[in-house]
Amino acid sequence: MSYDPPRPAGRLLLTPEDKEAPARADRLRRLGLGERTEPALDAFADGLAELTAAPYAMVNFIDENRQFFAGLHLPAIDPFVKGDGTAPEFGRTLPRDHGFCPHVVVRRKALVLEDVCDYPRFAGNPVVDEFGIRSYLGAPLIDRTGMVLGTICVIDVAPRPWGRPGLETIKSAAAGLVARLERREADGLPVL
């Protein structure tokens, strides 16, 4: 008889299981998304940040192991300084157990967190301490096949009253980006 100690209630247990990840990764490969930065998606993220007045915006494609920000908007001056006096370094990838986009993908619907610290499930996420994230607004990118390709999101280092206007804005922007991706695919053009 073997003994398996109980697993701690760490972040791995808080990240939802994503049964569609292999099929999504295959669809993303066929579309040519999720492996390289896309200037058009960076421009989309810039516009989303401007529209919502958020310091950070992303177009995020998620596979079995990681998140990839094919579109990314960062502020000119980072608004968060860690306890050691340094600013965090945002890259183009994150593990699946970081952030809130994996929840949006599995839930298949938008997520509004005006203050992540109000939700114990989300307050313990590594991005809260590592990047100072305090608010999140994200929506899934659901294509014509019903596959959730990823998300678009905006985040801030301060609580934000996104409310219904924020929810409608992010959902509308997600629908617009999906329509744009599908038009390009239907025309036989590279997706972006």
Rank of each mutant, 00 (worst) to 15 (best):
V105L: 11
T15V: 13
L111A: 03
Y136N: 00
C117P: 01
V154T: 09
A49D: 03
R164A: 14
K19S: 08
D46N: 11
G99W: 08
R144M: 11
A76N: 08
D26P: 00
V104H: 00
L33K: 04
V154Y: 01
R11K: 12
L113E: 10
P55C: 13
R7Q: 07
R11P: 05
G34L: 02
K171E: 15
C153E: 05
G10I: 04
L167H: 15
A175T: 10
P159E: 10
L137Q: 05
P120M: 09
F44A: 06
R160W: 05
P140C: 12
V116W: 02
L28A: 12
F100P: 04
T52D: 07
D115E: 06
H103E: 00
T37W: 02
H98K: 05
E130H: 10
L51Y: 07
A70D: 08
L94A: 15
G85A: 10
L149G: 05
L12Y: 15
C153W: 00
M147V: 11
P161V: 13
E64F: 00
T37R: 07
T52C: 15
G124R: 07
V154C: 14
A110F: 06
M147H: 10
E64Q: 13
M58I: 09
E20P: 00
P8C: 07
P165C: 11
V191R: 10
L28R: 05
G91H: 08
T86S: 14
A158H: 09
A87F: 00
A173V: 11
P39R: 07
N125G: 13
C101N: 04
A173Q: 09
P16W: 05
A45Q: 01
C101M: 03
D78F: 11
G163P: 04
V127I: 15
R24Q: 06
